[in-house]
């Protein structure tokens, strides 16, 4: 009996995002352990580029659910068509990245399938015939390992945590047109307002430059933005502490921490922030952490890999210039 490990891929604007390719890679590894095969499902409209990309991702099959009604995301619409496609597949496991869409959609699918879901997973397990997962709890202050007792096993995977390995192979692609009408949707996305163009989302950025009260005022935020830009286009995003968000210098979307975003970039540069326990909760799984603070006893140095004791107004411009030069 071949087990199916299903992946719900996310295609916004017809294109597959990297976290979905990470999920396909993780699914292939899990399928290897449980002796199964990977089936990727994707819902949307105008999915040709997504289908081409997913066919090369190393999956055995790709099922595209295409309808003009699915052109923009809707929780109940996407849930309905995916549940309809998943039920006959009877998958052993269903995976999706823990993105805004994955967070919204997977609990709905899981509830409709009458099973459990482990959110924001950092490791998948298949031991003694049971599927399990490890996930951070208490904002990363502890890790919980659990095994699923209902089927299918479902998990959303933390972006930037599983490697997106090269796929290969040409998967069979099947396109279906689900019978869904606008009237069947209980809630619809009326508008998508995109943030300033060219900026990379915080949770997907390879480099995060974060600032705190040490920056003294919103008018100095450009020091962080210039450092982020120095890493090149699409690489770095700027984050903030809650103190900054509460003061209204920056929007809440940019808050890193237990009650903000959790980020796991390759490099996290913490400038002029103290490293409160709630802030560290959101960034401690970064691969490398650099701290710049004028107080040598600031708690941020306890989690940092590299530390500079100094004034952000002196160190940030120097670092920006040096990064530019290093990458030139």
């Amino acid at each position: 009996m071949s087990k199916i490990v299903a992946v719900v891929a996310e295609a916004r604007g017809g294109k597959v995002k990297k976290p979905s390719l990470e999920a396909v890679s993780a699914a292939r590894e899990l399928a290897g352990k449980c002796g199964g095969e990977v089936v990727v499902l994707v819902a949307g409209a105008g999915l040709d580029p997504a289908k081409t990309e997913l066919a090369r991702s190393g999956a055995a099959r790709v099922v595209a659910l295409e309808s003009p009604v699915l052109a923009s995301y809707s929780g109940d619409g996407y849930c309905a068509v995916l549940v309809e496609a998943l039920e006959p597949l009877a998958p052993a496991a269903v995976l999706m990245p823990h993105t805004a869409m994955g967070k919204d959609l997977m609990p709905r699918i899981s509830a409709a399938l009458g099973t459990g879901l482990v959110s924001d997973v950092t490791a998948l397990h298949f031991d003694d015939g049971r599927f399990g997962a490890t996930k951070p709890v208490f904002a990363g202050k502890a890790y919980q390992k659990s095994y699923m007792e209902r089927t299918p096993f479902m998990a959303t995977l933390r972006p930037n945590n599983f490697e997106a390995r090269a796929g290969g192979g040409g998967a069979a692609v099947e396109t279906r047109a689900p019978a869904l009408t606008q009237e069947m949707l209980k809630a619809i996305v009326a508008d998508v307002v995109s943030a300033s163009s060219g900026s990379v989302p915080l949770s997907e950025a390879k480099v995060v430059v974060a600032g705190g009260r040490g920056l003294k005022g919103p008018e100095h935020w450009h020091l962080l933005e210039e450092l982020a830009q120095a890493f090149g286009p699409g690489v770095a995003a700027v984050g903030a502490t809650r103190a900054i968000v509460d003061a209204g210098w920056r929007p809440h979307d940019e808050q890193v921490g237990q009650t903000g975003k959790t980020v796991a970039p390759t490099l996290y540069i913490a400038a002029g922030l103290s490293g409160a326990i709630q802030h560290i909760a959101g960034m401690r799984t970064a691969r490398y952490i650099v701290a710049i603070n004028k107080d040598k006893d600031a708690p941020i140095f306890k989690v940092a890999d590299y530390g500079i004791v100094g004034d952000v107004f002196e160190v940030l411009p120097a670092l920006t210039a040096a990064v530019k030069q290093a990458l030139a």
Binding site: Y143, K145, V309, G310
Partner: peptide, 25 residues
């Protein structure tokens, strides 16, 4: 639907390397 097998503290991060003071670092 799920059974907790274990709860563990995250791995300790390696000790910080202090690189010096100010722009000179």
């Amino acid at each position: 639907a799920s059974k907790v097998a274990s709860l563990a503290l995250p791995p300790e991060r390696p000790p910080v390397k202090m690189l010096g003071e100010g722009a000179a670092a």
